[in-house]
Nucleic acid binder design. Structure first.
Lengths: 196, 196
DNA sequence: GTCGGATGAGAACGTCATTCCACTTCCGGG
DNA sequence: CCCGGAAGTGGAATGACGTTCTCATCCGAC
């Protein structure tokens, strides 16, 4: 892919993200994306074979930025000693980011349930990095649980995200439940850290 | 609502469920529903103000039947003593039901992420009954955890359902992970039951 | 019976995603 | 430097639906 093409691709994704964050996924039209990005509609389809494909790419892009920001943000502050606090803090910041960009949060959900194969790949990749980030925050969890626990927290997070995005719960409630889950799941491993 | 009208409503929902299970949600057309049910298209919209509304009603209906079947099925066999086994067995049967009706499972997911207000209500109600069923299977969980634990298992279940429905994992893998989650979460409360 | 709301049957409308067309513009190999 | 084909442009055309509309007919309450 030539630099020129990479740039076009980026413009498409940026335009999609801008438009989604402005008006929501459901009102996103391919024509708008093409206009806003300065790429012809037909060409758009040369880069992304379908709207779902573009949405998945855009979601992935945003999510990557988000994780970078989160990592940087956390690095800048003193980490709490207790494992569960670290995780809770991480999740709280994640939720805040969603709050700032509700339309992009909804985009994430849309892509998560998309049956487009590319979307599935992207979602898998996102889930993997998410679990890795969580795992990094819980060094005291024993090997036997290092697979399940992050998976579990990720699932709970997804679930709250969906509940919030669909208007079934407030962000505060969602976070509260999520925090409860985290504390419950990490409780058995917290003692060691406390002693440090 | 007259009996006549209740019947029409039922026909609409049945037709929707039949068509969805035959061809999948994405190919479901309102026109087909109207033809298959013998209710005029315009009338359909008098009963359900939108496709989402109809889908939500249909999903709710199916899910209710499903839960009844599950309850009956479980009642018919000897319950294992250990709490986590009971829950695992319940979830396994649930998963099998999804396997039998993948298109309806997908319908469930579709409705779960729908932003239609009626859909949200329905999803909330479904989640509540699901949690109640789970809770009934874990009598040894102490009061402090009787809210979180079912919630947690439900979230994990949702998450696996989505992963399966979108082709990100096989049903076997989904169930295996789910079982692991259940055992992990219920481990602290299992001892008492074992002793019985 | 009679009248008004409900229904049937299906045409008509409006909104997109996706594809096509007729030209330009680019770009790498000769 | 030149040329041919690939890539891009701008926008029209297509096709698929969800939703609404029309109007003739039906049904139940009075």
């Amino acid at each position: 892919m030539s630099p020129r093409q990479l740039e076009r691709r980026k413009h498409l994704i940026d335009a999609a993200l801008t438009l989604v964050s402005e008006t929501g996924v459901e009102r996103l039209q391919m024509k708008q994306v093409s206009e806003r990005s300065g790429v012809a509609l037909g060409t758009t389809y040369r880069y992304f074979s379908s709207k779902d494909h573009l949405l998945a790419a855009a979601a992935s892009d945003w999510r990557a930025k988000l994780m970078d920001d989160l990592a940087a943000e956390l690095r800048g502050s003193v980490p709490p000693t207790r494992g569960s606090d670290r995780v809770v803090r991480f999740v709280r910041r994640g939720m805040r980011a969603f709050q700032r960009q509700p339309n992009l949060a909804r985009l994430l959900v849309t892509v998560t349930v998309s049956t487009d194969p590319f979307a599935s790949e992207v979602v898998d990749a996102m889930a993997a990095t998410g679990r890795a980030s969580l795992l990094a925050l819980m060094p005291d969890v024993p090997p036997a649980a290092r697979e399940v626990v992050p998976h579990l927290i990720d699932a709970a997070w997804q679930s709250e995200l969906v509940a919030w995005v669909t208007g079934r719960s407030t962000l505060a409630d969602a976070f509260a439940r999520l925090e409860e889950v985290i504390r419950l799941v990490l409780a058995p491993y917290g003692a060691g850290s406390l002693a440090v």
